[in-house]
Amino acid sequence: MGDVTDHLVGVFRDPAILLGIPLALLGAVFMSFGAQYQYRGVTKVEKLTGTSGSAGLSGKQLLNLLRRPSWVFGTLMLGAAIICQLSALAVAPIIIVQPIGAVSLVITTLLNAKISGHKPTPRSIRSIIACIGGIFVFVTIAALFATESPVTDLQLIIILGLLLIVLIGMLALWLAVRKRGHPLFYIAASGVIYGFVATLAKVVISRIQAHDFNWLTALCLLGLLVAVALGAYFVQTAYAVGPPDLVVAGLTVIDPIVAVIIGLTVLQEAANAPLWAFAGFLVAGAIAVYGVITLARYHPQVLSDSQEIHIPRGSDKS
């Protein structure tokens, strides 16, 4: 217990980490509003074009998004969220910054309930609590044992190799399942990709701070841009098949879990953590993922849309 206390005191004596936490919280607020406005823009474009983006948004739909003020404003809000997150990553470990984004799930849920009229059900509320609770435990344990050290070239090569495998795998899966238009695929895919985006962003920032911008760092930046583009495409398509708070739930749970796994295994950001801490990571992560899966299944807007789609012909007598 004494080791835990020492770690906790060390964390809260570190002004960098204390600054990173409010920056990450502010980013979560911007993300919530950005997601809501982007979702509104995507749904408007679908109505105007008379086509669904569930199998992937077309080039015409993407161009129409640029003409929608709501989507553009949402994109600017997400840009502000990214700036806040990058600023937080510049001063605090990734395993602390990323999980804090789960706060945006609560804000987005309240916004979507007010705008769409689909109030959260007891089941969906329990799912949200599982998401937030799991991530809260996750970040608390991470905060106790988070440490940072310079990223070696070998670690960076491993991360880039894993990213390449993930990008190829996601594209192959997308080609196989795109016609089904299931929101969980797009949410999970974008969450995994953005987990790598956060990690690569942290690496690039650290290298720039250390004045060590070499060819490998440039390759890392290129991988970051490719991952951002593909992840953003999957997110926009996710808005076409699911409500914004469901999309945010996936991103704020899967994204940090992937980033933290990379931080733990490759970057060794919790090298001094005891065995019980890793067990806590596993349990907390499983609870959070369970929350996302059940929210996708019992979200009131998803259930309402599903019922509208499956109404038998001729059942409407009006």
Score class of each variant (00 low, 15 high):
residue 15 P to C: 12
residue 16 A to E: 15
residue 17 I to T: 14
residue 17 I to N: 11
residue 18 L to Y: 14
residue 18 L to W: 14
residue 19 L to W: 14
residue 25 L to M: 14
residue 25 L to Q: 09
residue 25 L to W: 04
residue 26 L to Q: 02
residue 27 G to F: 06
residue 28 A to H: 00
residue 29 V to Y: 09
residue 29 V to K: 01
residue 30 F to L: 01
residue 31 M to D: 12
residue 32 S to H: 03
residue 32 S to W: 02
residue 33 F to P: 03
residue 33 F to M: 06
residue 37 Y to N: 00
residue 39 Y to F: 13
residue 40 R to I: 08
residue 43 T to P: 01
residue 43 T to C: 07
residue 43 T to V: 11
residue 44 K to S: 12
residue 45 V to P: 04
residue 46 E to I: 10
residue 47 K to A: 15
residue 47 K to F: 13
residue 49 T to R: 02
residue 50 G to Y: 09
residue 52 S to R: 12
residue 53 G to M: 00
residue 54 S to I: 12
residue 54 S to E: 15
residue 54 S to G: 15
residue 54 S to H: 15
residue 54 S to K: 15
residue 55 A to V: 03
residue 56 G to K: 05
residue 58 S to E: 02
residue 58 S to F: 04
residue 58 S to Y: 03
residue 58 S to Q: 01
residue 59 G to W: 01
residue 60 K to V: 06
residue 60 K to A: 11
residue 61 Q to S: 07
residue 62 L to D: 06
residue 65 L to H: 00
residue 66 L to N: 05
residue 67 R to C: 04
residue 69 P to E: 06
residue 70 S to A: 11
residue 71 W to G: 08
residue 71 W to L: 08
residue 72 V to A: 02
residue 72 V to Q: 02
residue 74 G to N: 04
residue 75 T to C: 08
residue 75 T to E: 05
residue 77 M to Q: 06
residue 78 L to M: 06
residue 82 I to K: 11
residue 82 I to W: 13
residue 83 I to D: 09
residue 85 Q to M: 14
residue 86 L to Q: 14
residue 87 S to F: 14
residue 89 L to E: 01
residue 90 A to E: 10
residue 91 V to K: 10
residue 92 A to T: 12
residue 92 A to I: 10
residue 93 P to S: 11
residue 95 I to Q: 15
residue 95 I to H: 13
residue 96 I to L: 11
residue 97 V to F: 06
residue 97 V to L: 03
residue 98 Q to I: 00
residue 100 I to Q: 00
residue 102 A to I: 14
residue 103 V to N: 07
residue 104 S to L: 02
residue 105 L to N: 14
residue 105 L to H: 13
residue 105 L to T: 13
residue 106 V to I: 15
residue 107 I to T: 03
residue 109 T to R: 07
residue 110 L to I: 15
residue 113 A to G: 12
residue 114 K to W: 15
residue 116 S to P: 05
residue 116 S to N: 05
residue 117 G to A: 07
residue 117 G to R: 07
residue 118 H to I: 11
